[in-house]
Amino acid sequence: MGVIGDKLNQALEAKSVNNNINNYVWKGPKKEVNGKFEQEEIKLMDATPEQLNQFYRHCMSMLYSKDKKNPGRYHLLNIVDEQKKKCNIELFVRWIENKYKRNIPNTRPDYPRFLFLQDVRDFLNKPEALEAYPKDKYSETCIDAVVSNYPEEFSKITISGLMDGCLDSLGVFDKSHLSLNFIIKLGIWFTNAEKKELEERDEKTGKLKDRIDVIMERHRLKANARPRTLQTGLSYAEFRAMLNLKSKKYSELTTDQLVALRNKVLFRFQNEIEYHASQWEDRIKQIKEVAAAKGISLEKVNIADE
């Protein structure tokens, strides 16, 4: 057999070994012992029925928990999806007010949100509109019903979402799940203008400083929070907007923050959540395989209580 065929066989053999039920391992939380982090491990085939059920409950909690501080991955995906929608709604209201995309030639007059909302309500309260667009369907009816000639990016906004935006009823953007570590991992890719903006010279040597060092100094980042330059990274403006992000009402976030969240950051956060979810799903499959092999019944987990 040729080189490629041999490599394929080796890969298949390695996969078979890795998937061997006797190799399934449960890793406990990392603990600091004498200044070093250690992690206990136990082979699932060596686990007691009580341990297997404990591991199973933990996996299910990590996927389905609705705890506000530590939501399960599935619930967190829904939270982030809702955040994307609300960022988009607030941007739409700012577009109506001529506060978003002002650099694009625009002949529309400024349209304050309270006045826009009043006009929308007046239209929807007309007998023919009440018949065509029932109030109990506002959460399903897109803004096509009341608005025209708007940018495509807003096409999925509903009437109820529009009203919430105009009433400043979108609530608070919860930043707690977007850790500094996650933002740092996204990296930075400078625009040409940003390269010039970040040019600073060392007072002693007169040499240009590394741009990342300049950012570290400006934002007082610690050594363990050093971002990398990545082609897939955020622009410096986006990165700065995320560093300054706080848990605030959507109407209080800057337009730069709303755009960065909607267009990039929240999508990439969802990718990471989905990856973590897949890992817990794999662990559940392994636990079920081991339980079946050992004739152990796994207890039913009441997700509502997790």
Rank of each mutant, 00 (worst) to 15 (best):
D168H: 11
Y24N: 02
F269S: 02
A193V: 15
K185R: 12
E131Y: 14
E274A: 02
P112D: 00
E90P: 00
M1G: 14
S148W: 01
I188W: 10
V3Y: 15
L243Q: 02
E289H: 06
N88L: 09
F269H: 09
S179P: 04
L170W: 10
Y236Q: 01
L117V: 05
F123Y: 15
Y275A: 07
F37G: 10
D67N: 07
T229L: 08
K85Y: 10
T191K: 01
Y74W: 15
T107N: 09
V25S: 06
E306F: 01
S297V: 14
L178Q: 04
L198E: 00
L261A: 13
T158R: 00
K249D: 01
K86F: 09
K288W: 01
M163L: 04
N302Q: 08
K300H: 15
Q10S: 12
F123L: 15
V3D: 15
N181V: 14
G72I: 02
S61M: 01
N53W: 05
I159W: 09
S251F: 13
L162T: 02
Y236C: 00
K85V: 05
A145F: 06
M60K: 05
S297T: 14
Y24F: 10
Q279R: 14
F239L: 03
D67Y: 08
A223R: 05
V17F: 00
R283H: 10
P151N: 12
T205I: 06
R220T: 14
R283L: 04
M62R: 02
T254W: 04
N181L: 13
G295P: 06
I284Q: 10
F190P: 05
C142D: 15
K209T: 03
R228W: 15
I159Q: 03
D110P: 09
V3S: 15
T107Y: 08
A293I: 14
P151L: 09
L198V: 02
T107S: 07
K27L: 06
Q54K: 14
R108K: 07
H276M: 06
N244C: 10
Y236H: 01
R113Y: 00
P105Y: 04
F239N: 03
K175W: 04
G2M: 04
N224D: 15
L115C: 07
I303G: 01
A47W: 13
L63F: 01
K204Y: 07
N70F: 11
Y275I: 07
D46W: 13
I296R: 06
P105A: 06
F92C: 03
A132T: 08
D119Y: 06
S247A: 08
K264F: 13
E131P: 03
G5L: 13
T232N: 07
N98L: 09
V259F: 02
